[in-house]
């Protein structure tokens, strides 16, 4: 199939969707203005065009972005049909897309504030957990006595999901924010700590011998040899740990928080404002995607030597 033909086919569904949104008679009461939904459709189209432009022409055919965007359009059209046009779905539990996307127009500042609150906690917990885990992991990996002591403990602690202890931590810690940060620290620390120890102990023997021949002191050994050696492993684990931390954070925010994305969703559900809840869920997805893209960029920069 030629690119042009595919391009035309891909745009049938969004045209149907826009036609439905603008001109179909609406059966559902309480429908909000459709401007935000149309703007969202525009953003989706732009992202699709950007993906088309960025692909390497010879290597990748245009199928992947086309398939993805078609699925998105199909979901949106089905959603629009089921709610606003045909009024099939439950009027309160399944909000119309107009109402969901109108949330972004209605309270952008509220959403931004909640995002900022979550990201701040994430940044604090994540950086503390990561830095501690790598630093202690390097020492524990390098010094046999420390390893013999720490390794069994880490093996017991690492598999305990931090999410499970988070309700207890929320009760234990003086404030909700400190509890959430601690949940993230714990969630990031143990797997990274264990991973760092494992990577140090499985270092390429010739690299280790080569380093030992240069008689480095412990500090040089740990910071000039072992740290760069474990870094690629740590950074490739970053995506998983970032996603799980966000998950733990949102989970923690479901109880007792007064801000944050998890709180926003939970609060909206409490007041049966399901349009806001769905909007909040979409925001969480977008934030995770953006964070992952940033990590990929950082990964390429930090391990240029790989």
């Amino acid at each position: 199939m030629t690119l042009r033909r595919r391009f035309v086919l891909v745009h049938i569904l969004p045209i149907v969707l826009i036609g439905l949104v603008l001109f179909a008679p609406k059966a559902r009461p309480g429908l909000r203005p459709c401007g935000a939904l149309l703007a969202a459709a525009g953003v989706i189209e732009l992202l699709f065009l950007a993906a088309l432009a960025r692909r390497k022409r010879a290597v990748e055919p245009a199928t992947a972005p086309c398939d993805t965007v078609t699925l998105v359009w199909a979901l949106l059209t089905g959603w629009e049909l089921a709610t606003s046009v045909l009024h099939l779905a439950h009027p309160v539990l399944v909000p119309a897309p107009e109402n969901v996307f109108d949330t972004f127009r209605e309270q952008p500042l509220v959403l931004l504030r909640n995002i900022a609150s979550s990201l701040e906690l994430l940044a604090i917990g994540f950086s503390i957990g990561l830095a501690l885990a790598v630093l202690l992991g390097l020492f524990a990996g390098w010094i046999p006595r420390l390893r013999a002591f720490a390794y069994p403990i880490a093996n017991v602690m690492a598999p305990i999901p931090a999410v499970v202890i988070s309700p207890y931590l929320v009760s234990l810690m003086p404030s909700f924010r400190s509890a959430s940060a601690l949940v993230i620290v714990l969630g990031v620390f143990w797997p990274t700590f264990l991973g760092t120890i494992n990577r140090v102990t499985s270092i390429e023997p010739q690299i280790l011998d080569s380093a030992r021949m240069l008689q480095p002191d412990n500090r040089t050994m740990i910071f000039s040899i072992l740290l760069p050696y474990v870094l690629p492993g740590v950074i490739s684990g970053l995506k998983v740990s970032m996603t799980t931390s966000l998950l733990m954070l949102n989970f923690a925010e479901l109880m007792g928080a007064t801000s944050g994305m998890g709180y926003y969703v939970q609060n909206s559900i409490t007041y049966a404002n399901y349009a806001h809840a769905v909007a909040g869920i979409i925001v969480i997805g977008v934030v995770v995607t953006v964070l992952n893209a940033l990590i990929t960029k950082f990964q390429k920069f930090a391990i240029r030597w790989h």
Binding site: E204, Q206, I207, D209, S210, A211, R212, M213, L214, Q215, S224, I225, P228, Y229, L231, W305, H306
Partner: peptide
């Protein structure tokens, strides 16, 4: 090990995260 002796292996004598110059400088 001591810095009165230098060693070269078949592979991996160099540290992959340092440039050629940095390796020699180290």
């Amino acid at each position: 090990p001591g810095t009165d002796r230098a060693i070269v292996f078949q592979n991996y004598t160099l540290f992959p995260w340092m440039s050629a110059r940095k390796n020699v400088m180290f």
